[in-house]
Computed example of a mutant assay.
Amino acid sequence: MNNLVIMKDKQAVTIQTQKNGEKFIKINDKHFDYIDLLEFVCKASYTSDDLNTLLATIDLARDIAPTDKVGFLQQSVREIVLRNFDSKTFTEFDIHNLAKEKISSFISGCEVINHKNHPKHIPDMWVRIGRKEIPVEIKLRDFNLKARNQLERYMDFYGCEKGIAIGKRATTKLPENILFISIAELEESK
């Protein structure tokens, strides 16, 4: 079990005090003093998706700090963690690129195409399957009713029988003529 998972379990983390008065925590037979813990959090922030536990671990470090004059150091570590977390977070633009790269391997006979759009009706991308051009609407988070209405508006405006919806998950019922692809499915496709 990795150390961050253990930090998440408050029962598994106890603060101990050495004979010289310094406080530390012990995880998997390893001692973490104040500086060790802050260093651990900084390193973990490059790979962990668990922001809440990272921030809680910084708060835990405050409890074992050798002095109460460490506010600036802890705030600096917190900013590093937040910056690292933000830098690895997907944006909708990243999902657009992922979809352009992977959709043709996900749907047989599908190719991404350029399409002349009306300025008030611009889908995120277009694909062609056989002879049919299909608008694609991409959402970084959930594909909800508002997104469905937006895609259906494009389908109606351009006279398309089908549409493709991409998002984290579909939170609205989609008609049979709209294919939903989750971001996870795109990431897993070859």
Results as ranks from 00 to 15, higher is better:
D68Y: 11
F143E: 14
K102H: 08
H115L: 13
A56L: 12
V136K: 15
R131T: 14
A65L: 08
T89A: 12
I134C: 04
D124Y: 12
E39V: 15
K132T: 03
N20A: 01
K30I: 13
H31A: 02
S104R: 06
F24M: 03
R83H: 09
V81Q: 02
L82E: 12
K26F: 05
D124R: 11
I95T: 02
F40D: 00
A56F: 07
K132E: 09
E79H: 13
D33C: 00
I25V: 05
P119F: 14
D49V: 07
Q75Y: 03
A44Y: 01
I25P: 01
R83K: 09
D33H: 00
F24T: 03
W126Y: 04
N117Y: 00
K23R: 09
N117F: 00
V127C: 08
K23V: 09
D33P: 00
D49P: 05
P135A: 10
P135N: 09
V77I: 15
K132A: 07
I35W: 00
D33V: 00
N149D: 12
A147I: 12
G130C: 10
D124S: 13
P135D: 04
T89Y: 15
F40T: 01
R131D: 14
L73E: 10
C42V: 03
A44M: 04
A99F: 06
S48L: 04
V136Q: 14
G109E: 08
H115K: 15
A56Q: 11
T57M: 06
R83A: 08
A56K: 13
E111K: 11
D59P: 08
I25T: 01
F24V: 02
L38M: 06
M125A: 06
F24S: 05
I27M: 03
A44H: 01
G130T: 12
F32S: 02
H118N: 14
F93I: 04
K139M: 09
V41K: 01
K100R: 02
F40H: 00
D36T: 08
E39M: 11
Y34C: 05
K43V: 04
F85S: 06
T47K: 03
V127D: 08
L82F: 12
T67F: 12
I35C: 00
I107Q: 06
A56H: 11
A99Y: 04
S45Q: 03
F32C: 03
K139T: 10
N97G: 07
C42H: 03
S105M: 09
S105F: 06
T67I: 07
S87D: 10
L51R: 13
F40R: 00
V136F: 15
V70H: 08
I122Q: 12
H96P: 07
